[in-house]
């Protein structure tokens, strides 16, 4: 059943609607609920395939559904439809408008209605796809303020990496921070790259979602095996490689690869001269979990992130 979460008129004969698709057993189910949210950033599309696959599997096995599954594939419908990351017309990042307010601006009103609708979920998952510049291995990012509640859930989500990062005031206006503060455990997934779909990652996360749904008694099935992710909560574990000069970046390694100290991760080229301006190398052994896809770099543009190898992990 497709339901309207919020509907606002636009100036010229159009309604802006954020809709969700609700799945629950005919008898109403056991009241447990998971909400899968994606498309807050209109240029991040990996979650589209995940929503499709979750819906498809429920349609194939409706008898296995015990609780409620709410899919919100397009939190920022105008953005998705116009290839715009933020909310078009406002040049505003929707993920900086939460928790919103009913007497705030148009965008704050949308945010408030969405938050209101998500309250009551036993788990919320907000699926992102990095941005158009970077590719990420499937990972969950957790604000350290919420680590105790969220890390055990993230361990069951079939991702490769769980990154617990420091608290940051600016991030207080994200959907995840608002929901977690309201007591709705919300996991932020980053995977793949903007403007593209990655079948393997959608498959991987779909398995994780059904596994979590099993744990939450929303879905009954044979136990689905999930990966044990690498967990990092020490900010000094992560090495950032930023472009030291402006130019054209070409990656030499793929995300997910193990690196040895000195390995060439990518190069910055000068097409005028045929010369390599800079070689970016791994400063120590580690695991490449982020790599730049978008070739044009300014000085400072992020090119890669490497998780340092530690004794207990290979």
């Amino acid at each position: 059943m497709i339901m309207t979460v919020v509907s606002v008129p636009l100036p010229v004969d159009e309604q802006l609607e954020i809709r969700k698709s609700r799945f629950c057993p005919d008898n109403g189910g056991n009241g447990r609920r998971i909400s899968i949210v994606t498309g807050i950033h209109g240029d991040e599309l990996e979650g589209q395939l995940v929503c499709f696959q979750v819906a498809k599997r429920i349609n194939e096995h409706p008898d296995r559904l015990l609780g409620t599954v709410d899919l919100y594939p397009a939190m920022n419908p105008l953005g998705i439809d116009s290839i715009t990351r933020g909310i078009p017309g406002f040049d505003l990042d929707m993920n900086r408008t939460f928790p919103g307010g009913s007497d705030g601006s148009f965008t704050e009103y949308l945010a408030a209605r969405v938050v209101e609708d998500l309250v009551g979920s036993d788990l919320c998952m907000d699926i992102h796809a990095s941005n158009i510049y970077l590719t990420e291995v499937p990972q969950i990012r957790i604000n350290e303020l919420h680590r105790e509640k969220l890390v055990p859930l993230a361990m069951e989500a079939n991702v490769d990496f769980v990154w617990v990062h420091g608290a940051n005031t600016v991030l207080e206006s994200t959907l995840a921070h608002s929901m977690n503060s309201l007591g709705v455990p919300t996991l932020v997934v980053e995977m793949g790259v903007g403007m593209r779909l990655t079948q393997a990652y959608a498959d991987q996360l779909t398995e994780g979602i059904f596994h979590l749904m099993g744990r939450l008694h929303i879905w009954k099935d044979e136990e689905i095996a999930v990966k044990t992710p690498i967990v990092s909560s020490d900010s000094s574990d992560v090495i950032y490689l930023n472009a030291p000069v402006s130019g054209i970046f070409m990656k030499r390694k793929n995300h997910g690869e193990q690196l040895k100290k000195g390995d060439e991760v990518g190069v910055i080229l000068n097409p005028y001269t045929g010369r390599i301006l800079k070689r970016l190398t791994a400063p120590e052994d580690g695991w490449l979990f982020t790599i730049r896809e978008y070739p044009v770099v300014d000085e400072g543009s992020l090119a890669a992130r490497i998780l340092k190898n530690k004794g207990e992990r290979q």
């Binding site: 606002v8 008129p9 636009l10 100036p11 010229v12 017309g89 601006s105 148009f106 009103y109």
Partner: peptide, 8 residues
């Protein structure tokens, strides 16, 4: 020239 609903 245009306005959205719920705008101050």
């Amino acid at each position: 020239p245009l306005v959205y609903a719920n705008t101050a």
